[in-house]
């Protein structure tokens, strides 16, 4: 069974998205922040990561860059799911790219909360097949 890692500090998000993931026929794994998220990724590579941005401890921005600059992990598709407007996220990525002198590919998809649950399900199915 394909595995989906959900990284979000909001219990509502993890509850709902886990439910959606399971109903779509996948296995859901939950992490509460970037540090925990990276831990879960290293325990066993998931097939898809659904990642929030603003979280205590380690933010989603940092976790995303860690994933995308790690050779064995960078192919895992990532859906960003955040209440932050996509425009702000992509602008911050550009600034970080310039700062680090390395460019990181864009995520598979970016969904702004509050989204329609169906939208996320469609997207997951399209990515995971």
């Amino acid at each position: 069974m394909k595995r989906v890692l959900i990284v979000d500090d909001d219990i509502d998000v993890t509850t709902l998205v886990s439910k959606l993931v399971e109903r779509a026929g996948y296995e859901a794994v939950v992490a509460k922040n970037g540090v925990q998220g990276m831990g879960k990724v290293r325990e066993g590579k998931p097939d898809l990561i659904i990642l929030d941005i603003l979280m205590p401890k380690q933010s989603g921005v940092r976790m995303y860059r860690e994933l995308k600059t790690d050779e064995p992990l960078k192919d895992i598709p990532v859906i960003m799911l955040s209440a932050i407007a996509p425009k702000s996220f992509f602008r911050s990525q550009k600034v970080l790219d310039e700062f680090a002198g390395q460019s990181v590919p864009e995520p598979e998809a970016y969904i702004e909360k509050p989204e329609e649950p169906e939208e996320l399900v469609e997207l997951m199915k399209r990515i995971l097949g």
Binding site: D10, D12, V13, L16, R23, A83, I84, K113, P114, E115
Partner: peptide
């Protein structure tokens, strides 16, 4: 930003209730 997160929870809750009533799923 904070209100968007609350809205997310409300929308998600309503979605689950709808799913449950359609498919008779007490857990959801």
């Amino acid at each position: 930003h904070y209100i968007k997160n609350i809205l997310f929870g409300l929308k998600g809750g309503v979605y689950l209730v709808n799913v449950a009533s359609k498919e008779n799923e007490t857990d959801s």
